[in-house]
């Protein structure tokens, strides 16, 4: 039996919002549409992690700010207001990376800037923050950012492991593997690798979900 505090936690609204965003309403195919360009930074775990953090920051705070302003905003210019809030946050993230993590920001190149056109961010602002109080919107944004990040990290994990035999830059495949003739799969370092991994992920997800339904 689960202890009472855990049960109480499971009944709370924030928990439900987080669980929804992380698992139930997190089909990889939907997240990928949002990911768009971010797949380009999944060659290494490190860049993928930084990208996920940047995106989570932007989604969470844009949801919070837009939700705070939702009563003061005229309806017909709301898209413009939302885009400018998001753009401001993206510029903050971009300048922060440039100042404190210059190497990573060079590798991420234009893709941090492209968070602006990421469908997830605007989607959360439009679909959730406009009609919910600030606190809940913040949690929702946070959870969506993490859900998205987890997909990115999954792709990056496979690509770095299979493509260069490393994780976070540390070699994890023992040297005698290479001596025995093991080769890194160069395809994983290139763009097609990401497309194919995503395809296989979605396949796995479909299979798991349909098994759950069949029971």
């Amino acid at each position: 039996m689960t202890p009472a505090p855990v049960q109480a936690l499971r009944k709370s609204r924030s928990y439900k919002a987080v669980a929804r965003a992380l698992w139930e309403a997190n089909p990889i195919s939907k997240q990928i549409l949002g990911i768009c360009s971010a797949l380009a930074v999944t060659v290494q775990l490190k860049t993928a992690l930084v990208m996920s953090i940047a995106l989570t920051f932007v989604v969470a705070f844009s949801s919070l700010i837009i939700s705070l302003m939702r009563r003061a905003m005229p309806r017909n210019i709301r898209i413009m207001v939302e885009v400018s809030v998001i753009a401001t946050l993206v510029i903050l993230a971009d300048e922060f990376l440039r100042a404190f993590m210059y190497d990573v920001s060079r590798q991420l190149s234009v893709f941090v800037g492209l968070i602006i056109t990421n469908c997830i961010v605007l989607g959360r602002a439009e679909g959730y923050a406009l009609s919910n109080p600030p606190c809940k919107s913040f949690v929702d944004g946070l959870a969506n950012g993490i859900g998205y990040g987890s997909v990115l990290m999954g792709v990056a994990f496979l690509r770095e492991l299979l493509g260069s035999g490393k994780l976070f830059g540390y070699p994890v495949i023992p040297a005698f593997f290479y001596e025995a003739g093991y080769l890194d799969n160069g395809l994983m370092r290139l763009a097609p690798g990401a497309f194919i991994i995503i395809g296989l992920f979605v396949w796995l997800e479909h299979t798991l979900l349909s098994r759950k339904k069949g029971r």
Partner: peptide, 17 residues
């Protein structure tokens, strides 16, 4: 069955790439 729709599209895109 599980591969239909989005998944096969992604893999096709990969092959095209």
């Amino acid at each position: 069955e599980g591969l239909q729709g989005f998944a096969i599209n992604m893999i096709t895109t990969g092959l095209m790439a």
